[in-house]
């Protein structure tokens, strides 16, 4: 059974207008997204700005109102309208993009990391301190930093504080929303390695949301590509990077800069070729509204949004 199952998720934001400020239209931020994340894997959600990847992540966290569709965590229906609200927030935690603004500058590290268990567990001050120091050591920060404030740390260290807070309650799923895009290359490497370590240690499942395909390729077993609120392709890492089927995926993959300057010309002409193909075959791959079709399996692991044939 999948740890997380998202079924036909739709999140529409109303556009208001007119004199009475009534709803006149919708922004379909997420428009029918279905996917499953298996226990222990790192699932990558990729897309450009406006693709709905962050909105999807927030919806799983319960931070967005869901228009329709269902989200299941370990088989429990998360957004059931009737009956009791299921609180899985202890089991699902989020790491945010910006290590500079996601930590409250007026709070000490102790208070930041202890916040989750102050909400969920009754602990004495002593136990709490012990727990926080243990977590700090786990994320590779010295345990005497409990009384420091966020500004006393570097970007990479702050992101680790964010991770320490996220793993404080031993969650099963971590939603990492662009966790490294505000960081320098070498710090990014540090945080990525560290996420892999922590995943192994705690047997975590990660939903990794990013726009950087290099990072996604490095981190994820399976990947879903989003475009304007829908999936255009989903598959194993090799499916996506070695055998992209949808023209949008091809274009994204071709846009990744190549670090070998000797292949520069070759890469550029390939990219121009893909761009041309994209423009020419746009109507073959997208419907009349410029949106993706529904996913159809091409192999056991690989699904592509192609129009109905015949």
């Amino acid at each position: 059974m999948a740890l997380l199952k998202v079924d036909d998720l739709k999140i529409h934001f109303p556009i208001r207008g007119g004199i009475l400020n009534r709803k006149i239209d919708d922004v379909r931020a997420v428009d029918g997204v279905s996917f499953e994340v298996k226990q222990g894997e790192t699932y990558g959600l990729v897309g450009e700005s406006g693709s709905g990847k962050t909105t999807t992540g927030k919806a799983i966290m319960g931070l967005n109102n869901i228009t329709s569709g269902d989200i299941y965590f370990e088989g429990t229906h998360l957004n059931a309208k009737k009956g009791k609200k299921v609180d899985v927030r202890r089991d699902v935690q989020m790491i945010f993009q910006d290590p500079y603004s996601s930590l409250n500058p007026r709070k000490r590290v102790l208070d930041i990391i202890a916040e989750p268990f102050r909400n969920y567990e009754k602990m004495t001050k002593k136990e709490e301190m012990f727990k926080v120091q243990e977590l700090l050591e786990k994320v590779g920060l010295s345990s005497d930093s409990v009384y420091k404030y966020p500004h006393e740390f570097s970007g990479g260290q702050r992101q680790r504080i964010g991770v320490a807070r996220a793993i404080a309650l031993k969650p099963k799923l971590i939603i990492a929303d662009e966790p490294v895009s505000a960081l320098d290359v070498s710090v990014q490497a540090q945080v990525l390695n560290f996420l892999q370590d922590i995943q192994k240690d705690l047997n975590l499942t990660i939903l990794f949301i990013a726009h950087d395909l290099g990072v996604i390729k490095h981190m994820c077993n399976r990947i879903g590509i989003m475009y304007r609120g829908r999936f255009v392709e989903e598959g194993l890492r090799d499916d996506i990077f070695n055998d992209p089927q949808h023209i949008y995926t091809k274009r994204l993959v071709a846009a990744i800069p190549d670090v070998d300057p000797r292949r520069r010309e070759e890469h550029q002409s390939f990219r121009a070729q893909v761009k041309e193909e994209y423009e020419q075959s746009f109507n073959d791959y997208f419907d009349e509204n410029g949106l993706a079709h529904s996913l159809k399996p091409v192999t056991d692991t690989h699904k592509v949004a192609l129009p109905e044939r015949g």
């Binding site: 320098d184 490497a189 540090q190 390695n193 290099g214 990072v215 390729k217 490095h218 670090v259 070998d260």
Partner: peptide, 24 residues
């Protein structure tokens, strides 16, 4: 060399990225 080997998913990178010790 360190910078190149810390960029993920390139021919310079290993499964485990190189991390430059210490901070700037």
């Amino acid at each position: 060399k360190s910078l190149l080997s810390s960029v993920p998913a390139t021919e310079y990178a290993q499964d485990r990225l190189h991390v430059i010790q210490g901070i700037v």
